[in-house]
Design a protein around this nucleic acid. Sequence first.
DNA 1: TTAAATTCCTACCAGTTTAGTAGGGATACT
DNA 2: AGTATCCCTACTAAACTGGTAGGAATTTAA
Lengths: 131, 131
Amino acid sequence: MFQLALNYGNGPMLLKDIAEKENLSVRYLEHLVPPLKTARLIYATRGARGGYSLAKAPTDITLKDIIRVLEGHLYPSECVETPEVCSRSRFCITRDIWTKLEETISTTLAGFTLQDLVDKYYNKTHHEELQ
Amino acid sequence: MFQLALNYGNGPMLLKDIAEKENLSVRYLEHLVPPLKTARLIYATRGARGGYSLAKAPTDITLKDIIRVLEGHLYPSECVETPEVCSRSRFCITRDIWTKLEETISTTLAGFTLQDLVDKYYNKTHHEELQ
DNA sequence: TTAAATTCCTACCAGTTTAGTAGGGATACT
DNA sequence: AGTATCCCTACTAAACTGGTAGGAATTTAA
């Protein structure tokens, strides 16, 4: 998603290129694509000259959006979302803590957009050039 | 650890009793004990009339202490602690985010002590009595 | 029209982690 | 001496994670 953000506005990008830049296999990346499409964070153009593009501006995609799609959840224990999994949920103090923790994680991740990453990236490489 | 905190000041507590109250098996709890002892969060008294006690006051044990001991770490990716696991660490933007996230999680968990849980517990049961 | 480029879908696999169970030994109180 | 209790090591089964593999579908372009 970071590579797609870097490439935003320049047409579709190949998985092959993303794989090279991020040092991952195309086969593996293919695995991540379907949920991202379903969530309408990216869209695909098939066939020759095809590839993937962000479906929204990098300013409009937060890390929380991405991680929720790829990891499924942010809570440290399932009982946060599904109290029924444990008979103790109603009065469980630990569960209150897990809920609090999920809120913190959520808030932190929602505070970063892809554009923030792109900006950080350019700051970083610029700094290295100066040294 | 919550049960030990509730029992703090009343001598050693049996794993059997903790197991009953938390609806866990003694065999499983035995598994959690060694790291907690090594970290000097609890101590054991062997033999008849033995059991486990907190090694410090509940006000002096944070959830971060406990979770670091039982889960080993708080980071979402190993590269946060051990940059060498990935050649991209030096310039990886994502890693910066994971580091930030670990800090947030750490801070949140360090903000709760066992005494806080005990207090919440009493508040909660008191409330239910009123209804 | 055909070949090449590329996404898309489903299945499989292997290592690690998690949540336990099990047996028996060591220690200390009464 | 006997019993309660912790202690240590090994084993196991299910789920999760990260990844490979094969081949079908679609689109562009020569």
